[in-house]
């Protein structure tokens, strides 16, 4: 059974989006308006377990997290490449399977390089 999919199929998603946005905005407005408001200089400071705060949180953090993010971008793009292949997997047959094995082999070679470089090592 071949079915046509039109852009109008996505319309119910916008109904859901409207519903969710409405719920969130109403809740936010209500909670902002009915709670008490008491401010003081000490209270408005960032919480650091009762010790006077040193500077703010706009500080550099470990580069490991950045490397993880870069790796994610690389590998996630590879994963996205596999989706169309997986849908057509049966019609592509052995040729498609072997080609994807080659692709995954390259991917794993890159992954092995990353591990040997110690990018995923935490101490």
């Amino acid at each position: 059974m071949e079915k046509m999919h039109l852009p109008s199929d996505f319309l119910p998603i916008f109904i859901q989006l409207g519903l969710a946005l409405g719920f969130i905005i109403t809740t936010m407005l209500v909670t902002h308006s009915i709670g008490p408001k008491r401010n003081s200089k000490l209270k408005d400071e960032a919480f650091e377990c009762g010790i006077p705060a040193e500077g703010d949180a706009r500080t550099p953090i470990s580069v490991k997290y950045f490397l993880i993010a870069i790796l994610f971008v690389l590998f996630d793009v590879e994963v996205i490449f596999m989706y169309p292949w997986a849908v057509n997997f049966k019609s592509l047959g052995w040729a498609g399977f072997v080609e994807m094995l080659l692709f995954m082999g390259l991917l794993l070679a890159g992954f092995y390089y990353v591990i040997r470089k110690g990018v995923l090592k935490w101490e």
């Binding site: 909670t31 009915i34 709670g35 408005d44 400071e45 703010d56």
Partner: peptide, 11 residues
Amino acid sequence: MFFKEDFIPAQ
């Protein structure tokens, strides 16, 4: 939750 203070830090 609704009746608690909605606190936003100064910074």
